[in-house]
Amino acid sequence: MKLLFVADPLEAFNPKKDSTLAMMREAARRGHAVWACEPRQLRWLRDARGAQAVQAPCRHIQPLDGARPWFTEIEVVALALREFDAVLMRKDPPFDSEFFYATHLLEQAEREGARVFNRPRALRDHPEKLAILEWPDHIPDTLVSRDPAALRAFAREHGDVIVKPLDGMGGSGVFRLRNGADGAPDANLGVVLETLTDTGRRTIMAQGYLPQIAQGDKRVLLIDGEPVPYALARIPQGGETRGNLAAGGLGRAQPLQEGDLAIARALGPTLAARGLLLVGLDIIGTRLTEINVTSPTCFVEIREQTGFDVAARFIDAVEAAATRAA
Rank of each mutant, 00 (worst) to 15 (best):
residue 237 Q to M: 13
residue 217 D to C: 09
residue 207 Q to P: 11
residue 226 E to C: 11
residue 144 V to A: 05
residue 290 E to S: 09
residue 128 E to K: 04
residue 261 L to G: 05
residue 18 D to W: 01
residue 63 P to V: 04
residue 280 G to M: 03
residue 71 F to V: 02
residue 73 E to I: 09
residue 317 A to D: 06
residue 25 R to D: 07
residue 276 L to D: 05
residue 96 D to L: 07
residue 125 D to I: 03
residue 170 G to Q: 01
residue 39 P to L: 07
residue 292 N to Y: 04
residue 160 D to Y: 02
residue 231 A to D: 03
residue 240 E to Q: 13
residue 34 V to T: 03
residue 20 T to V: 11
residue 85 D to Q: 11
residue 213 I to K: 00
residue 81 L to F: 02
residue 259 G to Q: 08
residue 243 G to I: 10
residue 149 A to C: 00
residue 14 N to W: 01
residue 78 A to I: 12
residue 259 G to L: 00
residue 325 A to I: 07
residue 227 P to W: 06
residue 220 V to P: 03
residue 135 W to Q: 12
residue 190 G to Q: 12
residue 264 A to N: 08
residue 31 G to D: 10
residue 251 G to T: 11
residue 122 A to Y: 01
residue 32 H to D: 14
residue 21 L to T: 09
residue 150 A to C: 04
residue 10 L to Q: 05
residue 268 G to L: 04
residue 187 A to F: 00
residue 200 G to Q: 06
residue 155 A to E: 03
residue 105 L to E: 01
residue 34 V to H: 05
residue 71 F to M: 09
residue 110 E to Q: 12
residue 184 A to S: 15
residue 212 Q to T: 08
residue 42 L to V: 07
residue 15 P to F: 06
residue 291 I to H: 05
residue 157 E to P: 00
residue 313 R to F: 00
residue 69 P to L: 09
residue 158 H to Q: 15
residue 260 D to M: 05
residue 271 L to P: 00
residue 65 D to P: 10
